[in-house]
Design a protein around this nucleic acid. Structure first.
Lengths: 244, 244
DNA sequence: AGACTTTTAAATGTCAGACAAATGAAAAAT
DNA sequence: ATTTTTCATTTGTCTGACATTTAAAAGTCT
């Protein structure tokens, strides 16, 4: 683990990169303890605050965790699926909100990915996941539900669909798509949407999964995509006519 | 932007979270300058090193960038697709390498996602992307190509396929799947694989995209998935017989 | 001897103050 | 008017110190 003395990048960046490389390459294994901050400072010939800034960078990416006290220190973290989920969601949310991604683009990506899960989910969904979906549909049909709660229930429904595939890697990849894009879509379309229509399609999806009928799930997802896009179009149309 | 004086979390974590929230909620907009470190220290009633640790955490997530000098400071960063790609790839790589994900699970996820792109790519792929794929196939057929180079070319081929869908959100979501999993798969299967077989399937995919024939692309991808899984099985089998 | 309590040492968390280096803007000189 | 110089601001880094947490070692009592 060495840093390049000729590089003009910030020292804390270089040190973070050196440690990151050691972790990725397997020189540092999960749960292994890093040298103490003082030792690292000595090793890299920098001060402790500089080492600390480097460690905080790594901690922000869940690459390490720190523990205080005797026999404490920084340890290589086993990146859990949950940690990865939340990072994925944060990144996706910011990416969408900051880059003015066209609604159609986001919508297309989201449904393409979700449709990829559907056949697997039709095969493998557990009764528990089906029950979750039914419960969310029921919640969505309750009158007096706020828009926020409806959106959250919508997300939970689609999460259950994705988790139904029983593939944690797939669930992880899709966390960003579902959790970041659904609220975005709801925000745009909630003024125009018909909850009945959505609930009907959700029911169709749940029925399809119940009967392990991948085909009909796919059809319903396509219909939901079409409906969502049409809503966005209507909203845009209305906005245009209002400004004129 | 306030922190909870009763919380016992590290101050730098709390401060980072407060600023992060301000960015996500839109209180701080892209390219806006944060107060200087000294002002933030004053505002949060902490020392400058503590503020700096918080800022480094945010910088590690590409949420801010810093600039030295007069009129320098920390600025809210527009999260670019490229930044998001590389974060996605790092996270995915670590997730796979640290969690002992079953080969079949990773393989299934990767091809499910890639197949989701295929129909869109068949519709929209540019001549340029087709040319890239042909070029990579040619490179793969060169004798004397190292395993690393073959793997890199493999990744480039699949990236071109994914980018062919012309949907940056989709490309972003799939960056992790392709770039993290392909090397993993190559590492496991390179001893047993036949480059000819893979090149033949790649050619089938390129041909299908050329003719905008989504069906045949899907068939070839499925065949590639089957072949990859069979390889892994063979390798595992061989390993077992060797230890006995 | 064994169980409990106290002490201690090591490590991270935080603070204060200082200097270095970069950088843009204002002031001065040409 | 243009170029050069100066200067203030801001981040990057260092030093040294103290606070807090924590596990292990030492001590104490039953």
């Amino acid at each position: 683990m060495k840093i390049d003395p000729n590089s003009n990048a910030d020292l804390s960046v270089q040190i973070a990169q050196a440690i990151r490389n050691a972790i990725i390459s397997g020189q540092l294994i999960v749960d292994e303890r890093l040298p103490s901050e003082a030792e690292l400072a000595d090793q890299f010939q920098v001060s402790r605050p500089t080492v600390r800034e480097a460690l905080k960078r790594l901690a922000a990416q869940s690459l390490i965790r720190t523990q205080r006290g005797a026999s404490g220190g920084a340890f290589v973290n086993r990146l859990s699926f949950e940690d990865a989920y939340s990072q994925q969601i944060t990144t996706s949310t910011l990416l969408l909100s900051m880059n003015a991604v066209a609604f159609d683009t986001a919508c297309e990506a989201r449904y393409a990915l979700e449709r990829a899960c559907a056949p697997l989910s039709a095969q493998r969904r557990t009764p528990d996941q089906l029950a979750t979906m039914r419960a969310e549909i029921f919640r969505q049909s309750q009158p007096g539900l706020t828009d926020e709660a409806f959106c959250a229930s919508d997300v939970a429904f689609h999460r259950a669909l994705v988790d139904g595939a029983g593939n944690p890697v797939l669930s992880y990849q899709l966390a960003g798509a579902v959790e970041a894009m659904q609220p975005l879509m709801n925000m745009i379309t909630f003024t125009a949407r018909s909850r009945e229509e959505i609930i009907a399609l959700h029911t169709e999806i749940a029925d399809g999964l119940d009967e392990k009928d991948a085909e009909s799930v796919d059809t319903a997802l396509c219909a939901l995509e079409r409906y969502t896009r049409k809503l966005a179009l209507d909203v845009a149309e209305r906005k245009r006519s209002k400004t004129q």
